[in-house]
Design a protein around this nucleic acid. Structure first.
Length: 110
DNA sequence: CTGGTGACCATTA
DNA sequence: TTAATGGCCACCA
């Protein structure tokens, strides 16, 4: 495998990982980083998602903070959109926190 | 080059 | 429970 990964390649790897998250499930930025083979690089995940085009098909909304909270400030359009998309998939919230179980990459490889 | 910023996170207090 | 701290590091002025 290639070792000298460019930032673009790392982004691609992150997007591929996010694509694996099943509908109705959520994963944290750090979790995505781990699965993508980039432990400790949670911030890179957020950066990679910010580069996505609207029609990318990557389910960016299934990625939330480790605390179970949406990372966009409450009240923003981004925040409302992400929450709406998740609720449409059956993800439940309680007190601004996701209570639906996290994605388990081992149990749900695809 | 330096310094600030941030869709983060685990730890500590 | 919240707040501060240190680590992470790509990107930008």
């Amino acid at each position: 495998m290639t070792r000298a990964s460019s930032t673009r390649e790392l982004y691609a790897r992150i997007w591929e990982t996010v694509l694996l998250i099943p509908s109705g499930r959520v994963a944290s930025y750090g979790q995505v980083a781990d699965v993508a083979g980039l432990p400790g690089r949670a911030r890179l995940v957020g950066r990679a998602l910010g580069e996505l085009a609207e029609d990318s098909g990557v389910p960016w909304h299934r990625v939330i903070g480790a605390s179970g909270r949406i990372s966009f400030p409450a009240g923003t359009a981004h925040h409302r959109l992400q929450r709406a998309l998740l609720e449409d998939e059956g993800v439940r919230f309680e007190g601004g926190r996701v209570v639906t179980p996290r994605w388990d990459p081992d149990a749900d490889p695809a």
